[in-house]
């Protein structure tokens, strides 16, 4: 198994790692909800939320740098909100002449854009801390605890278990393609860009064949898995252990966390709503 780097979980010893996965799951969703409900312009509330997030990142031992680097991955989507800078009416900030048109950036538009980007940035950090500090089985437990249907949770578990196996299959397919499709070197004097394989249609067909091959292997593997499950007493019912009780400490963390987020939400609502 070569793709264990896929798993974002970082095994460390910290109070955040030690916290019950169910509490973390609920608090993360509550945090993202609070960020979403914080009204436009409530900058002090955003600052408090950011300090809360950074404190958690430091406490978790993951480090602020680690989380922020991963948070960059969600950055390109910010482009979708960029037009806000130019379409929101308000005080003029700058003019951008593009050909025959002139785009007028406004202060209000800029603030709206920053508001959206900030919300997105805070939320993705919370999700990263959850995924990096909680092992996947604990997340499954948390999903069962919030009453996500058992069949769906079983599906998540099965998918996670075989994801690594099938990712390995995928890597093998890619290696096979790389070793067979003759990576053409650029010939001196030839202006055309060198690329592996033939025409676009050829490359698409080969990739399609690889995808088909991957699906075929998956289907055949699922047959073997089914037979193995049958021989171990599977009868179509997904069974799971009873949920362990929440410790007093986890319960108090949950309620304290929820009240802090509730206070932040109320502050934003009352002062800027």
């Amino acid at each position: 198994m070569h793709v264990h780097f896929l798993d974002p979980y970082r095994p460390l010893v910290s109070p955040i790692h030690a916290l019950d996965g169910r509490v973390k799951f609920v608090l993360t969703v509550a945090f993202i909800l609070t960020v979403s409900l914080t009204p436009y312009g409530a900058w002090p509330v955003y600052l408090l939320l950011l300090s809360l997030m950074i404190s958690v990142e430091i406490l978790s031992g993951l480090g602020v740098g680690f989380v922020l680097r991963r948070a960059n991955l969600a950055l390109p989507f910010v482009l979708a909100a960029l037009p806000l800078v130019f379409t929101t009416p308000g005080r003029e900030l700058a003019r951008l002449p593009i050909g025959p048109w002139t785009l007028v950036a406004t202060v209000e538009g800029m603030l709206h854009f920053i508001n959206v980007a900030l919300k997105s940035w805070l939320s993705v950090q919370a999700a990263i801390v959850l995924a990096s500090s909680t092992p996947f089985p604990d997340l499954l437990l948390a999903m069962r605890a919030v009453r996500i249907p058992r069949l769906l949770v079983a599906m998540f578990g099965l998918m996670w278990r075989y994801l690594f196996v099938l990712a390995d299959e995928g890597l093998r397919l890619m290696r096979a393609r790389a070793s067979r499709s003759g990576h053409a070197r650029r010939v001196d004097g030839e202006a055309r860009r060198a690329r592996a394989g033939g025409s676009l249609g050829w490359r698409a067909r080969v990739t399609g064949g690889m995808a088909g091959s991957l699906f075929l292997r998956a289907i055949e593997r699922s047959d073997r898995i089914y037979v193995a499950m049958l021989s171990r007493g599977y009868d179509g019912e997904v069974r799971s252990f009873a949920l362990p009780p929440l410790s007093l400490r986890a319960q108090s963390t949950l309620w304290i966390g929820l009240s802090v987020l509730g206070i932040l939400w109320l502050t934003g609502l009352l002062a800027w709503g």
């Binding site: 069949l151 599906m155 578990g157 099965l158 075989y162 196996v165 991957l214 699906f215 898995i225």
Partner: peptide, 11 residues
């Protein structure tokens, strides 16, 4: 179908 759907999702 249960293992099939899980493995297909992974695929």
């Amino acid at each position: 179908q249960v293992p099939l759907m899980g493995v297909l999702a992974a695929a």
